[in-house]
């Protein structure tokens, strides 16, 4: 048990703080929602009712989609794009998909390589892109979920103000949808770019996200 906790502490820690933050969002989100309801003279929602409301689901999904988009872009962009001096970048002569030998696929697979790395054909192609495929699928599904619950939340608001509801097709071109979407994207893109660039000169001793403290500023693709 102790060994399991130690070997999985990173995944467990983030899983735990995710659940705590989601719980906190539900409590605070409900309070804010009910304040708004009060000013409109509408009914208050219990916590269970708020948890199945379109408002809560939209707030959760708009953040999910942007996080998974961020990682999808980072995974794919760093195949081709470089940043001199950054531990987040590959070495400057390694841009691109690299050779089968470098990537240990097909006949270059090692004894302990995953079977789909060795087998070749479609399965190796799929497996070679499986991380981006997974992050991309989660991004698209959470963005879809944001739009579906978003139009419902938007229409509930419209009806409470005696305004006409709109269709999903209208909603995905609406100011509300793109305002929610882009306000999340801009912060993710800034944070990722900042991480790639600040790590040229700044260090965190012991972190694999940083270069070793004593690494030269123009050392690229070195992780601590």
């Amino acid at each position: 048990m102790r060994r399991f906790l130690r070997e999985h502490s990173l995944g467990l820690f983030f899983g735990l703080i995710f659940l705590l933050a989601l719980f906190g969002q539900a409590i605070a989100g409900r309070a804010e929602f009910n304040n708004h309801q009060l000013t409109q003279g509408l009914a208050q929602l219990s916590l269970p009712s708020y948890l199945v409301s379109a408002d809560f689901v939209t707030d959760v999904m708009e953040n999910w989609q942007s996080e998974f988009l961020q990682f999808l872009l980072y995974i794919v962009a760093t195949v081709w794009l470089l940043q001199r001096g950054s531990p987040e970048s590959k070495e400057l002569d390694k841009a691109g998909l690299e050779s089968d030998e470098d990537q240990k696929v097909g006949k270059y697979a090692a004894d302990d390589s995953p079977p789909w790395a060795r087998v070749g054909g479609l399965r190796t192609t799929i497996y070679s892109n499986s991380l981006a495929l997974a992050m991309g699928t989660i991004f698209l599904l959470s963005w879809l979920a944001q739009s579906i619950s978003g139009v419902t939340a938007y229409n509930e608001d419209q009806l409470s103000q005696l305004q006409a509801p709109i269709s999903w097709a209208s909603y995905i071109t609406s100011a509300d949808f793109w305002s929610r979407t882009l306000q999340n994207w801009q912060s993710e893109f800034l944070a990722v770019g900042t991480m790639a660039v600040l790590s040229i000169y700044l260090r965190q001793r012991g972190s694999p996200e940083s270069k070793p403290v004593g690494s030269a500023h123009d050392a690229t693709g070195v992780e601590g």
Binding site: H8, G11, L12, G15, V52, S53, A54, V57, T58, V60, M61, W64, I138, L141, S142, L144, A145, Q146, I148, S149, G150, V151, T152, N155, W168
Partner: peptide, 30 residues
């Protein structure tokens, strides 16, 4: 190694499934 991988995938699938079901059900007049 595999339990954590599976747990994360299940969690995310449940979250996405929940969100889509709630969104669709509410949208259909729930």
């Amino acid at each position: 190694v595999r339990p954590m991988f599976t747990a994360y995938l299940i969690f995310i699938a449940l979250g996405l499934g929940y969100a889509i079901v709630i969104g669709v059900a509410r949208g259909l007049g729930g």
